[in-house]
Design a protein around this nucleic acid. Structure first.
Lengths: 194, 194
DNA sequence: GATAAAATATGATGAATATCATATGCGCGA
DNA sequence: TCGCGCATATGATATTCATCATATTTTATC
């Protein structure tokens, strides 16, 4: 009997399914994720799915975490690429960029599907909580000069503003308003960080 | 042939279905709204539905607007009940209250299902846009001393913070964090409002 | 290169659900 | 009070989708 080794064919396929599901959650929402569609997106057919995951629910739980991890990775990259002293605004500009508005499937999982999270199974909610804490921590670290507690408070407020601005910017049917909302959120964050 | 008059039996039944659907959207999300469930909630059986609405889609469009209208009504009431000079913080406190976190089906439609809106039909998006503009206008009017443009900008930023804070507060699996997020958002808005 | 086991595909099944056709019952005008 | 229509209910149909059983292909070891 062969084992499932890291890097094995099966492991790679599982990863591909997982990534496809993580994108599907952000593109179609949790309820919009279908087993067959995810498998097709991963270049496979529907039947083999259960060789990789116990159930659709198990996939959603794993994919929720994966989606969160990808979001954090993007923001971390943006911070790393920023000029010293500009890290927070680099994060904010990346988060509120046209690109992020247009491509939810590659972006923040909370902005893309956050309002569905309260209705999901416990594992999904756990993953979402963990990733939300991660994002808050990422923002918090941009305020080293402030006390831990003050920085944490500011970070939570800023995270809320960013998520809300992106949700509103995507919801409205008027690209000018979408732009204005994001600009206003940027200014609000800048003032709060000042 | 009898006409459908305002206040007629049929009109009242339609209203009941509409209200049930508006609650269902906020409780189960757009995808989670089923014709049979809505009808049962309205005290009817599934078959009669098509005497009142063309299709499930037509119901969703009408119910999205209804849900938005109910949300605005709640906030308007909170402002009206506030002591003079405390209107904005009354709105903020109502929006970020424990009650609102716990009862999405009676609250803000954007916080409850906002991340699903970009995927909905055009009529739903139109209704959402209209109601988002209404909320921004409501907040904007709390800054009479500022110029129109500055008040509008502030209002958009504050709306984003409120929506994001509620989404995050509902998503996390940790009631302490949920409380802290809302408190931080309150402080951020207070500071922004000067 | 042959063979066994793993990985994936094909096809079937059952449940959920939107929609529609038809039946029933209740209120309104005589 | 009686009968006609409107409002609602019952039941049927078709489709979508998760899950599973079985067949086929691929891979790795000898």
């Amino acid at each position: 009997m062969r084992e499932v080794k890291a890097g094995s064919k099966k492991e790679q396929t599982r990863e591909r399914i997982l990534r496809a599901a993580a994108r599907a959650i952000r593109k179609h929402g949790y309820e919009g994720v279908g087993v067959a569609d995810v498998m097709k997106e991963a270049g496979l057919t529907h039947g083999g799915f259960y060789a990789h995951f116990e159930s659709r629910d198990a996939l959603l739980a794993a994919a929720a975490d994966q989606a969160g991890a990808e979001s954090i990775e993007n923001l971390t990259r943006a911070i790393a690429a920023a000029k010293p002293g500009q890290e927070l605004m680099a994060l904010v500009n990346t988060y509120l960029s046209d690109r992020h508005v247009a491509a939810p499937e590659q972006g923040c999982a909370i902005a893309a599907a956050g309002s569905e999270v309260p209705r999901q199974q416990a594992e999904v909610r756990r993953a979402a909580s963990r990733r939300i804490k991660d994002i808050i921590g990422l923002i918090e670290r941009q305020f080293p000069e402030w006390g831990r507690s003050a920085a944490h408070d500011k970070a939570m407020g800023i995270a809320a503003t960013l998520v809300g601005a992106l949700v509103l910017a995507r919801a409205v049917d008027d690209s000018q308003l979408s732009n204005r909302i994001r600009k206003a959120a940027r200014e609000l964050v800048r003032a709060a960080a000042g």
